[in-house]
Design a protein around this nucleic acid. Sequence first.
RNA 1: GUGAGUAUAGCUCAGUUGGUUAGAGUACCAGGUUGUGGCCCUGGGGGUCAUGGGUUCGAGCCCCAUUACUCACCCCA
Length: 420
Amino acid sequence: MLKAIYGTKDVLPKDVEKWNFLESTIKNIFASFNYKEIRTPLLEETGLFSRSIGEETDIVSKEMYTFQDRSETSITLRPEMTASVVRAFLEHSLSSQSSLNKLFYIAAMFRQERPQAGRFRQFHQFGAEVLGSSSPLLDAEIIILAYTILKSLGLVDITVKINSLGITSSRKVYLEILKEYLESHLNELSEESRKRFEKNVLRIFDSKFENDIQIMKDAPKLIDHLDDESKQEFQVVQNILRSEQIPFLLDSSLVRGLDYYSKTTFEIVSDKVGSQSALCGGGRYDGLIELLGGTPNYGVGFAAGIERILLALQNEKTKLPDNSSLDLYVVLLNKELLNEYYLFATALRKNHLKVEIDYLSRSVKAQMREANKLRAKFVALFGGEEYAENKVVLKNMGTSVQQVLPLENADKEILLSVGS
RNA sequence: GUGAGUAUAGCUCAGUUGGUUAGAGUACCAGGUUGUGGCCCUGGGGGUCAUGGGUUCGAGCCCCAUUACUCACCCCA
């Protein structure tokens, strides 16, 4: 049997409704914060991602869908959106049209990882990128925005974790201090942590080995080595979050995996999605625009995983709105009146009623059962005795009350009844 | 890339120490007196028991391989 590609999923009609609810909620909230939607191609030149995300990161070194097109250009299906948005920002000189650009997206991403709960090879993210300001107000706004959206989608049990990585130069100094400390404990560290020592020292803070945790307890903390500017701005962010009554935890082990982050980083987690607890992650990336060849400028943003949010909602047993009902089901009593039947229903559809009819020549009972299954508010019984008198029967499926209407103004009567 | 687990109807799953024509629930279809839903009742269709080999008189069940999927590690949304 033909199957969807490993790690990709069909979204069937009953689930599309949930996606639509999510997407419209997300768009409404972005609109209220005055963010503008941006859409970029799924495909980019591979170099865009290797330069921005970082050659050494897992995403670039082992997770990208990369191939050569016919002109032997190396093409990659986007594994994340920030690089593409910044590329579009530079390509179209958006900064010269407006000194601040607040952008959002809802889009598919691709990473060639082993799928598991809350992780897919094609997955969907919504997110925001604000380009053009270093104001910590925006760091806070991004967090508030992400939190507000998740809450509005119905999530209850979520936690905001924040950290500051400082500016690149102060972080470099700190990393040397940390390495110096760890070198004296290198033999006691787990093998995994020793690998991290080479690749990404900060990750050792995430280690699950008891011995590592003990060692890291006494390690110098990034937060104590922040440059003054980062320190002060981080306070501003925290103050705003407090006055907005957004609960958060300081988490010094929060090191966003991509190379381009600086200063504020944050994550929103849920323990309802299996081991992949991050629903949302983001932060500031002030060096990225310059890195991609633009004149130096500021950026801050976040990305959230739609599949993970749906999973969390499902596991929190949140009921999503269900609009799958039907205004009217038209039952055909006399099969010889098929043409008239079809025209009758079509006329009602032109009045923007949600109308369904029988296409399968089924018995009246079967049609009624179908109407019930589709949760039709009303059923019109077309044909039969009433038709001979130019009339049609309208039944209210909630109250079971029936009335007989003249055909010539049946559409108006039905509109009145269904509308009420 | 590493590790563990699972595979029987569209879906969720039973299937005894290996023993006749492989079951249930649900979904689907049809009926339960003329042209009326929900609840209920009756009946029906639907399975190469993932695939290929092996052991055996006999395999859904035991063994091996393959494939697919799931979960976890790494990392991330």
